[in-house]
């Protein structure tokens, strides 16, 4: 589904040039559950940004379904984020000005979904998340777990093929975090590809594969991943 080839990410901080990612090659297959682990500053968030096309790499190739998307115009990249990717953030990132319904409806408006369809889809998703009693509540009136479930509903609104989760349980108590993980597991079972950044080894065990990051490089991965890399080198 996604193939990264020799990705480099550099940030120009005035006089100093910071290399955030160094020669990353990586493949994520359809339906895979990938966990990214590593210490702070290892580049895992940068990698997630790249995977979600929130940032363009300084060098290297990014193939999505076989198409190089690094050189696509902003409008196309936005369309891909909107239709194919779903983001789940550590701090939920809901709009405090909008109700749960409106938060879920928002990405669909960029996809050109009609108001009534947006409304019914949002209602359906929130009900699935067990929030049918919270439809018109503002995020500030909800608990952290509820807010994250609204965020997941929002991420699912356009039926994405890839979910990108950045420490989705980081701001939640353990019990609530488990609820979120269960939802992600359920999505994975339904065939959605999931890439999750986490600090928690236990959570990482849920994944099909764990990518360890250190100083902007992939340190160690499962055997499967090594095989992929070897096969790429062979090509």
């Amino acid at each position: 589904m996604i193939r990264l080839e020799n990705i480099e990410q550099k940030y120009d901080l005035g006089e100093q040039e910071v290399v955030a990612l160094n020669n990353i090659s990586l493949e994520i297959k359809e339906g895979e559950f990938v966990a990214i682990m590593g210490p702070s500053g290892s580049g895992k968030s940068t990698l997630l940004n790249l995977l979600g096309i929130l940032d363009n790499p300084s060098a290297g190739k990014f193939y999505l379904e076989g198409h190089d998307i690094t050189s696509l115009p902003d409008k196309e990249q936005a369309r891909i984020r909107n239709k194919h990717f779903g983001f789940i953030f550590q701090s939920f990132n809901l709009f405090s000005e909008l109700s749960a319904m409106e938060n879920v409806m928002l990405p669909m408006s960029y996809a050109g979904v009609s108001f009534s369809d947006r409304k019914s889809r949002a209602k359906e998703l929130l009900t699935q998340m067990g929030l049918s009693h919270r439809l018109n509540h503002l995020p500030t009136m909800m608990s952290g777990g509820e807010q994250q479930r609204v965020a997941i509903a929002r991420a699912l609104s356009n039926k994405p093929s890839l979910i990108l989760a950045d420490e989705p349980t980081g701001n939640l108590p353990t019990a609530k975090g488990q609820e979120i993980l269960d939802i992600l597991k359920g999505l994975h079972k339904q065939g959605t590809t999931i890439v999750m950044v986490t600090h928690n080894d236990e959570q990482a065990q849920m994944a099909d594969r764990v990518i360890y990051m250190q100083d902007g490089s992939i340190q160690d991965s499962s055997k499967q991943d090594n095989k992929v890399l070897e096969s790429q080198r062979g090509e």
């Binding site: 929130l54 936005a78 909107n82 960029y110």
Partner: peptide, 12 residues
């Protein structure tokens, strides 16, 4: 930034 992550283009 969030709007863009959710699919808003520069134009939007």
């Amino acid at each position: 930034g969030i709007l863009k992550a959710l699919g808003a283009s520069k134009n939007n």
